[in-house]
Structure formats: structure tokens, C-alpha cells
Design a protein around this nucleic acid. Structure first.
Lengths: 249, 249
DNA sequence: GCGCTTGTTGACACAAATGTCAGTAGTGGC
DNA sequence: GCCACTACTGACATTTGTGTCAACAAGCGC
């Protein structure tokens, strides 16, 4: 009974609507209903939107042309017409997602960097960028799948870390902790934010959207205090706990 | 040209050997070569091993019966014979992985908890469990795919956090920070460890296995110092950075 | 209005993956 | 040594998903 075939189909996504949500009315079949003809750019954009949404849920490997086509309200050859191949579509989605992620990040970070609680504001900014859109999830899928193509993640991290380190030197002067300390601060922040999106649902007891939101906020506030106090104190207190780290610095 | 079919095939895994690594010699076809017959238990175990390895790389959705079969050196109906269906195999792998993860975790954590640098030792222990075997990756795949079945992750976290909190109260007495502080410490550790396995390769500049290993170790040492100093000082220093957290505690 | 460009589509071809089945062949019990 | 049990396999059936193709039709320049 039931000969199900390839590729697991991860429970096939919560039925956002019956399928073909937006333009569905037209396909009650029957007569002709006048077939719509978008500009190439509009079509591409609509398809990308739908594909992005799906991809955040099922990952690049789970994306199905027919599903995306149904969501948009077109037939699957249309997608192939615009993107050449499934792989082309995936690449386009990834590209756009990564670009948007970078843009939002630099914007948000540039915006909130001079408040009185800079660390918290940055964490919140980054969380806003990563969470609500599926950006963090898409990136996580890619990373898991081993596709780390033009993501430029490390460059971003290093740029941020270097800038922050310079700022710190400006404040502390002589006895500023080494660059790697700031690098690790940034890394830890990134890991915490990404990790929360990815394995958070698995580590915390089941909770609804609102509860999750509040818990996330409280956690980020806590983390911000932890990091802020670390940054303010330099590494003094840490040196106490330190016993013999690999030579000097 | 080339009509490639379903399910992306994520570059099809670094060819660990040509395929059918272990029992391959026998299949040079030609004559009969005497077909091997394991006990049911041995067969299941061999299949599970191969499937686990694949699954850590391609995720539950990407697992292909024929690939696993080839790795083990059997035909794919054999797998179906032992596990009923593909889904059965996936379930079995997940089950075993989760069980092993739990077992290793409690063992390792129980072991290294009375050293002089308890935090570091726990982090290292957890890293040993999560990293080398694909455990963290498997769990991450599941979490991303939304399959959070019998993982019991939150229970584990809470048990650990509660135990650690009790220990802390035993030391600090009256002015012990609230439970949630310890809970967040544990959560942060988990997120950092998981996150490093999942998105680490994307955040750091490209590095070989040894470099990655060393960097990981340095990062965990740094994190351990950060957390240790936080735990020793109670929340005193954090209260300084605190402005007005939602009422009292 | 006419025709050209091109977005769009149904029907089809092809591949890959799961699952079925009847039959083969080790292995242990007698 | 024979027999029953069952691990194992090749061949096939079926499903699902990608990609091709020829034809249709919507918008635009003329």
C-alpha cells in the first residue's frame, strides 16, 4: 500500500492554504479565465518570494518546483523558463537571501551602534534580521548541506569584529585585550543567535509564538549584560580564572 | 541536456571510497562469490552505522536507500527487509542517535564535574559528544526539518540546569542568582556548541581539520573562562550593567 | 488592426527512488 | 545429510519530480 517515492517530503509544510494560495481562484479550470502575463521581472520576483518561503522550511534539497509553481499560481515550466533549472532557482534564492542578509545587517548595525546599551541593541538588530525572515534558516540549511559558496560569512564576521575592536581600543587605550577576545565575542553572539533559531525549538520546552518571543528577548537581554560587563571590565576578571593559557597573550 | 531528477543530491557526498567500501570485493560480479548472511542483529547494526554516517551529511531528507545499501555491501531490498520502509530506517537511525547522545552526555558530564575547571571540562565533554560523531548534525537536521519528536532535548537541558543551580546554591547560599541565570548559562553553552558545529564552517575563514580543532579548543577555553568568572561573581557585575529589568528578580 | 516578441502552458519524455514479490541460498536443528 | 527458517537478491511496478517541446496568447510597436 502506498508506494511513496523519493525525497521524504518533510510532512509537506503546514498547509498555508490549500495550495496555490494567491492566484488560485483562476484555476477553477472550466473556461479560460484569461491567463495572466507578468513582466519577466515581476514573474521572477514573485517566484523568488514563494521559493524563499518554502526554502526556509524544507531547505534547498526539499524544494519542489511544482510546489513553488502552485504557490505562485503558475505552471512549473514557467519557473524553468525563468530560471533555467531547479538548480538555477535555488542559486537565485540563495543569492538573494544572502544579499538581503548582508544589506540588512550592515544597515541595522550601523543604525543602532551609539545608544546607551550598544550590545543589546546590536543583538536585537541582528535577531530582527535573522529570525522573522527565514534568513538564518536558509543559511543553516546551506551550511549543513555543505554548500558554503559565496556566503562571505567569515568576512562579515571579521569586519564587524575588527571595527568593534578598534572602538574598544579607542576606549581602553593601552591595556586593551587582544583582538581575538573581541573576535570571540562576536562569534559567540552569532552562534547564540543562529543556534537559537535552529536548535532553540528543540532545547526549550514547547511554547507558542508569543512565549518564544518573550523568552528570546529575555535571553538576549541576559546575554547582552554578560557581554557588556565582560567588555567593560576588560579581561581582568577572566585573568583570575585563567591558569596558564598558551603563552602570554 | 541531462534530465536530472528529484531531490538535489547535495553533491552526493565526498566519495569516501568508490562506494560499497567495506564488502565491495565480493561484488566483482562474475561467478557467485558466496553471498554473505549476517545475523539479523548484525545486519541491522551494520546498516544503521552506514545510514547514520550518511544522515549526518545529507540529513534525513537526503538519505537514499541505494546509497546506504551500497555502503554496507547489500542490495536495497535487504534494508527494506530489516526496517520495513525508508521511514522506518530513518526513525531507527534517529532513535539510536538520540539515545547515544543522551547516554554519552550524562556519562561524560557525570565524569568530569569535580575537576578544578569544571566549566571547561563540561564544555569539552559535550563537544566530544556532539562533534566527532555526527550527533549534533543529525539533531540539527531534525530541528530544521521540524521533526522534534521524542528528542527530549528540553528535559535534558532543564535537568542539567537544575542540578547546576542546586550546586551553585550550595556554594553561594543566600544571595544565589535566580534559577533562570543558570538556565541561560546552560542554554548559551548548548547554543554555542551546536552552533559551532552547524554554522561554524560558515562563520570562520576556511581552515583545515587541525586548525579548526585548535580554534574550537581555544574558543571553548575562552567561553569557559567567561562563564566561570560569571558564575563565581554571582551577578554582581551584571547588576551594574543592568538598568531596569522587568521587576525585581 | 497586424504581427512580433516572449511569457505561459499541457502533454510528454526521462530518470531516480521506493516498495513488492517470487525465488535463491546460507545456517542451525534434527 | 536433510529440512525448515529466513536473510538476501534480481526484476519489476509505481510514483514523483525535472526538463523538453510545440503551440497558445498577451502586450507592444508599427
Amino acid at each position: 500500500m502506498a508506494k511513496r517515492a523519493p525525497s521524504e517530503r518533510v510532512k509537506s509544510v503546514p498547509p498555508t492554504s490549500e495550495r496555490a494560495s494567491s492566484k488560485r481562484a483562476q484555476s477553477t479550470h472550466a473556461t479560460s479565465e484569461k491567463r495572466v502575463r507578468r513582466t519577466a521581472e515581476d514573474a521572477r520576483s514573485a517566484i523568488l518570494d514563494a521559493a524563499s518561503k518554502r526554502m526556509a522550511e524544507v531547505g534547498p534539497g526539499g524544494l519542489r518546483l511544482q510546489d513553488v509553481a502552485a504557490d505562485v499560481g503558475v505552471s512549473h515550466p514557467t519557473i524553468l523558463h525563468h530560471f533555467g533549472s531547479r538548480e538555477g532557482l535555488v542559486a537565485a534564492v540563495v543569492h538573494r537571501s544572502v544579499d538581503a542578509l548582508h544589506a540588512s545587517l550592515v544597515e541595522e548595525i550601523g543604525k543602532g551602534r551609539r545608544g546607551e546599551k550598544p550590545v543589546l541593541e546590536m543583538l536585537e538588530a541582528a535577531a530582527r534580521v535573522l529570525g522573522p525572515m527565514g534568513h538564518a534558516r536558509v543559511v543553516a540549511w546551506l551550511s549543513l548541506a555543505g554548500e558554503i559558496p559565496d556566503t562571505r560569512g567569515s568576512e562579515n564576521i571579521e569586519r564587524i569584529a575588527r571595527a568593534a575592536h578598534e572602538l574598544r581600543r579607542h576606549h581602553h587605550g593601552e591595556d586593551t585585550p587582544p583582538y581575538e577576545d573581541m573576535y570571540f565575542v562576536i562569534i559567540l553572539s552569532a552562534l547564540a543567535l543562529f543556534g537559537d533559531v535552529i536548535v532553540g525549538p528543540m532545547l526549550h520546552p514547547p511554547e507558542d509564538e508569543r512565549a518564544r518571543e518573550r523568552r528570546g528577548k529575555r535571553f538576549r537581554a541576559w546575554l547582552a549584560r554578560l557581554l557588556q560587563s565582560h567588555l567593560e571590565r576588560g579581561e581582568e576578571a577572566m585573568v583570575a580564572a585563567r591558569t596558564k593559557t598558551r603563552r602570554g597573550t
